[in-house]
Write a protein that binds this DNA or RNA. Structure first.
Lengths: 345, 345
DNA sequence: AGACACCCATAAAACGTTTCAATCGCGGCC
DNA sequence: GGCCGCGATTGAAACGTTTTATGGGTGTCT
C-alpha cells in the first residue's frame, strides 16, 4: 500500500521470487524460455511488489524509444488536431506511441521541445514549424533524428508532406466562374504566409485560364472570424455595381465571419453573394448557410507523414527524402449553390 | 556531416578534448567549478562532435524527468485543447515540458499511454479519463505517480479539478426565467454522462427555487451538431401552445445545430425562441445569432490542475488530496437578449 | 553406467550519465 | 623547506535494464 521510497527494481523482484535477475528479465522479454513454474512465481512477485519497468534503463541498454513526436504549431486549431489524429493512426499501426507537443507558434518553446525530444532519443519528429527555414531543424536531422515537415514544404534535404494550395485556389475560383460569377474577390492575408500567397496564385491562374472574370484582393490582418466580419463590412460598403459577387476566403474562419456579417446586413447567401471557404472545418457544414469549402486531406496528411517518418527511421541509413504533395478537393454546399428564387416555405 | 553510427557520448567528448569524463560532466552541470580554459575546450569539442545528452542515462542515474503528461479524452474538442493550453502555462512556469497524449475515448489506448508514461517515470499525469472510476488510475496513483483528474470528479483518494455543472444548469435556467420564459426545455443526452445529469439537476433546481416554469427534457443520442438539428425539428413539430420557448442545450454544438434548424424553418431567435448553450466555444460568438452560453474557466482549469500536480510531486510525501470545483459563468449574447413580454410597468 | 543433449537458470558486462571521494599541482605561510 | 589549503581535475561507483557466455541439473540413448 505505502510505496513512498523508490520504485521496486528487477533486483527486488528477483530477490522476492528467489531467483536471479536474468531470469526476471527472461520472464519479461522471452517468457517462452523460462519454465511455467518459475514464470508464475516471478509474475506473482511482480504483482505483489507493483514492479514497473524502468524505461530509461531499458532504452539506455538496448534500445529504442518506440515513441515519436508531433510538434504542432497550434493545438487549438482543428486543422492540426485532425492531422494529429492521422499521425496517431499511422503510429499505432507500427506500435509506436505519439507525443503531441504544442509550440503555440512560439519559437523558443519549439526549440525547447526539439532539444528535449532529441535528448529523449525519440524515433523521429514530425513538425509543423513556426518558421519555414529553421536551421535547428536541419541540424536535428543532420545529427540523425528522422524529421518530416508537415504542411510545410522542405528543400531536398528533408521529407515533407503538403497540400497543393495553388490547386486549391484554382478549384475554388474555377467553381465560382462555372456558376456564373465574374467579379471574384480573394479575402485573406497577410500575404507573407506561404499558404495565402499560393491560394492567390491559384485564383489568378483560374481566371487567366478561363480568360474571364476579375479578381479583387481584400487583404486581412489575420485569418480569424473577427477579420472575416470586418472584410464583410468593407465588401458591403462597395457600390453594388462594382461589388464582387463571390468572395473566396483564405480559410473557413474568415468565411464564417463574412457570412455572419452578410446575414446581419440583410444580404442573402448565395443569392446576393456566393461564399467559398478553405479547410472544410467541422463548422463549415454547420454554419447558418452551409459553406462551400476547399477540403484538405488532413487525416491522410498526418497518416502519410507518420509512415514516411517510420520508413526513414527503419530504413538502414539509405533513404531518399521525399516531398509529397496532396491534392485538395472542393466540397460544394449551399453557400454557392444557386437556389430557385421562389422558395417553398 | 555523416553521422550514421551511434551518437557521440560524453566519453567521446572527453577523449576529443583530452580531458576526463567527469570534467565533461562538470562543464555541463557545474560550469563554475571548471576553469575557463578547459571549459572552452570542452565546449568546442561538444560542438564539433554534435554531442547531445542522453536523457535516458541521465534520468537513470539521478533523476527526474522534468516532464509531465496530459492524457486527454479528445484532442479535437476545443474544450480540451483550451484546458491543455492552461496546463502548458502551469508547467512552463515550473520549467516542465508537457506531453499531450490523446486517448480518443479509447480505453485501450488510454491504458497503453498510462503504462508508457509510468515506465518513462514522468513527474506526474493529468488525465480526463474515458471512464470515471478506472482502477488502473487508482493503481497508478497508489504506486506513487502523482495523478490529477481533470474535469472529472474523484473520490478522496485523488486530486481533481472540475467545474460545477449543477451551478451551470442553474445559471442558464435562472437567466431564462428572468427574461420571462416559463416553458423551458433541456436538450441533451445521454443522461448517463455525469455532466449531462448535473446540468439537468441544476436546471430543475432553478425552477423549483423560482417556483415557476416547467422543464421539458429532450433527450439526444449525442452532443453534436447533427443531434442539435434533429432536436430542432422535434421542437418545431410541437404544437405552438405547448412548445417550449427556451431550449437550454447541454453544449454549444447542440445549440448551434438547433439554431441552424430554427433559421431554416423560419423561426426567429431570440424573438420566437431563446437559446442557451454550454461551453462558450469560439464559434458560439460567431454563430448567425451569437449564442448565450455557460462559460467554463477552461484555461484556469488546466493551469490549476498542473499546479496541483506539481505541488503533489514536489511535496515530500505528505500531501492531502484536494477536489477543487470552479464556478462557471453565464455569457449573455443575442440568442436570449429580449425584453420580457409580461413585465409589469 | 557413462556420454550427450537439452533446458533452465545464473553471473557478469555493458549502455551513458551523475556524483563523490580522492588526487594533483601550486602558491602562501610559518 | 615542509605543511596546509585550495581550486581544478580525475577515477570509480552506481542507477536498472538487456544480453551473452557459462554453468548445473535432468532425462535419454547406447
Amino acid at each position: 500500500m505505502v510505496a513512498a521510497q523508490g520504485a521496486p527494481s528487477m533486483k527486488n523482484v528477483a530477490a522476492h521470487a528467489g531467483v536471479s535477475l536474468g531470469t526476471v528479465s527472461n520472464v519479461l522479454n522471452r517468457p517462452e524460455m523460462v519454465s511455467e513454474r518459475t514464470r508464475r512465481r516471478v509474475q506473482s512477485s511482480i504483482d505483489a511488489l507493483g514492479f514497473v519497468r524502468n524505461d530509461s534503463a531499458r532504452q539506455l541498454r538496448g534500445g529504442t524509444s518506440r515513441t515519436l513526436a508531433y510538434v504542432v504549431l497550434d493545438a487549438s486549431n482543428p486543422f492540426f488536431t485532425d492531422v494529429a489524429m492521422g499521425v496517431q493512426e499511422g503510429a499505432d499501426a507500427a506500435g509506436l506511441a505519439v507525443y503531441l507537443c504544442n509550440s503555440g507558434e512560439n519559437s523558443d518553446r519549439q526549440a525547447a521541445y526539439l532539444d528535449l525530444l532529441e535528448q529523449q532519443r525519440v524515433e523521429g519528429v514530425l513538425i509543423t514549424p513556426v518558421h519555414a527555414e529553421d536551421p535547428r531543424i536541419a541540424a536535428l536531422a543532420a545529427r540523425g533524428t528522422p524529421v518530416v515537415l508537415v504542411d510545410r514544404a522542405s528543400g531536398p534535404g528533408l521529407c515533407s508532406v503538403t497540400v497543393d494550395d495553388v490547386l486549391g485556389g484554382d478549384l475554388a475560383v474555377t467553381h465560382l466562374l462555372d456558376t456564373g460569377h465574374r467579379r471574384i474577390a480573394f479575402v485573406g492575408g497577410p500575404r507573407a504566409i506561404g499558404q495565402v500567397a499560393d491560394r492567390i496564385a491559384g485564383a489568378e491562374q483560374a481566371i487567366s485560364r478561363a480568360g474571364a472574370g476579375t479578381l479583387t484582393i481584400l487583404d486581412t490582418a489575420a485569418l480569424n472570424v473577427a477579420e472575416g466580419r470586418r472584410a464583410g463590412e468593407r465588401l458591403a460598403g462597395l457600390p453594388s455595381a462594382h461589388r464582387p459577387t463571390a468572395p473566396f476566403c483564405a480559410n473557413d474562419l474568415l468565411a464564417l465571419g463574412l457570412l455572419q456579417q452578410m446575414v446581419r446586413l440583410g444580404l442573402r447567401v448565395p443569392d446576393d453573394l456566393a461564399i467559398v471557404g478553405y479547410d472544410d472545418i467541422e463548422f463549415a457544414e454547420a454554419a447558418a448557410v452551409p459553406l462551400t469549402s476547399v477540403s484538405q486531406p488532413r487525416h491522410l496528411l498526418g497518416r502519410t507523414a507518420a509512415e514516411l517518418l517510420l520508413s526513414e527511421a527503419r530504413g538502414d541509413g539509405a533513404h531518399d527524402h521525399q516531398q509529397l504533395v496532396f491534392a485538395p478537393e472542393l466540397v460544394v454546399r449551399a453557400s454557392t449553390r444557386l437556389i430557385p428564387v421562389s422558395r417553398p416555405v
